[in-house]
Amino acid sequence: MCLAVPGRVISIENEDNLMRIGKVDFGGVIKSVNLAFVPGAQIDHYVLVHAGFAIGVIDEEEARQTLSYMEKFFEADHRS
């Protein structure tokens, strides 16, 4: 139950504070998700969804940074 799954926001239907609802595409499976906790999330953003709520927006910059850490790690490993 503690699982959170990433998905892409494809529409936002209700902008009401508590009930900010949108449709999220999980690699083909589309579900209605509460977006109240991620007011900054817009269409095409990737969000992390737990039990029907988006609990975070996946930061593209952060993801890219993590990937670059990987690259650096390998370079360093290669040199040593």
Binding site: M1, C2, L18, A36, F37, H50, A51, G52, F53, I55
Partner: peptide, 20 residues
């Protein structure tokens, strides 16, 4: 309501919605 910090805001949201 069972859960860790991940689930806590969801339960809070339920309480606020019910109140509203």
């Amino acid at each position: 309501a069972i859960g860790f910090e991940t689930t806590a805001p969801l339960i809070a949201s339920v309480i606020l919605t019910a109140q509203k």
